[in-house]
Design a binder for these strands. Sequence first.
DNA 1: CGGTTTTGACCCGCGC
DNA 2: GCGCGGGTCAAAACCG
Length: 419
Amino acid sequence: MDKGWGLTLDSDHPIVSNLNFFTSNKPKPSLARFRTNRDMAASGAADSASVRMFQLPASDNSNAPSSSDDNRVAVDEVDFFSDDKNRVSISDHREDDRNKTTNSVHIKKENSHDQLRHRTGLDVNTGLHLLTAANTGSDQSTVDDGVSSDHADEKRTKIELTQLQVELQQMNTENQRLRDMLSQVTNNYNALQMHIIALMQQQQENRRAPESNQAHEVVEGKDEGKKHDDQVMVPRQFIGLGPSAETDHEVSNCSSDEERTLSGTPPNIVEAASKEHVNSNGKNEIVSFDDQAAAAAAAENSNGKRIGREESPESETQGWGPNNKVQKLSSAKGIDQSNEATMRKARVSVRARSEAPMITDGCQWRKYGQKMAKGNPCPRAYYRCTMAVGCPVRKQVCFINIHLCSSLCHIIIVINKLS
DNA sequence: CGGTTTTGACCCGCGC
DNA sequence: GCGCGGGTCAAAACCG
């Protein structure tokens, strides 16, 4: 009987309808994925499935292939995963809103019926406390046949129904507003992406022209000139992203933004790490390509880890981050780029530092290796993303301070692509 | 029993 | 060519 109530009442319950309201676009995959995140404890995921459902509002994006593919998702997930205060405040906020707009219909109703059930001795611990709340009025009218309060119950039920309808309407309005915002953001993103692509194409054409004119200079300059050109190439591609982007520093800041979303670390920490990488060179085990690639990843990954997941042909042909190294090599050797791309494994690495004890980046990672890094007593762990079959995204987590092994780690997101 | 972690071996790129 | 170090693989061990 309890089950029947729960099943029939699910869709009517304000909380459930709230869920449906927020997850109307694609609830099932997201929920399933978040539930599997329980297994992420080893790689740092938080575990709070009930709260994760409420992450979906922020991650609800009809155009995004998956929840973790959106930057906003990562940020929001982090906020929800990592901070219990946020959860409380958000849920409280919603309850406050309800109380303001609907005179506490939902909350008080549930409590009142609980009290009634206590009084009438019908208190059954079904474990469906929330799900059955909306229908307990009718339940009571059937169970408590002959009670003098039948008429009052009916009135109350009608009032509640009206209030629920009002609430539903408000939610629909809010839903529409959110959809509008979403479409606006999506349009902006698409426009920006097209702009970047156009800029890159224009840049490639511009580069080809002077190269053909100054071929003899390149021959004289030999590798050094080319190296310089190559090193500048990648950041320059993304200078167009911002009006004032002009140095690696700017780019690294941009990358740190992305890293922030991927690792869920505080901005200052990641930025510090990023700057550290920029300042470090040579033997500091951080190759400059990483920073450039990070910038590339940051620039192209405005949609999270999309490239890594979708193997998008755009990124292949447009010279995006993952293939920059390949392009550099092939251009230096004069080899056909497309042939070269098929032979090499391109890679984009994004580095971020996190002091959080748990890395809540919303992905599901499986450890596939561990190595002792030179000069570091703490081992470096290798994780593979298991959110999707064949997902090329991998993550390194290397602790950088033996005394803080449990809290301070160095994360490297590597997106491997088999061209 | 299936999934995950551990760990030694192997591969590959790079510097000398 | 050789050695070194980083990254990956895969079999064994472990775990729920």
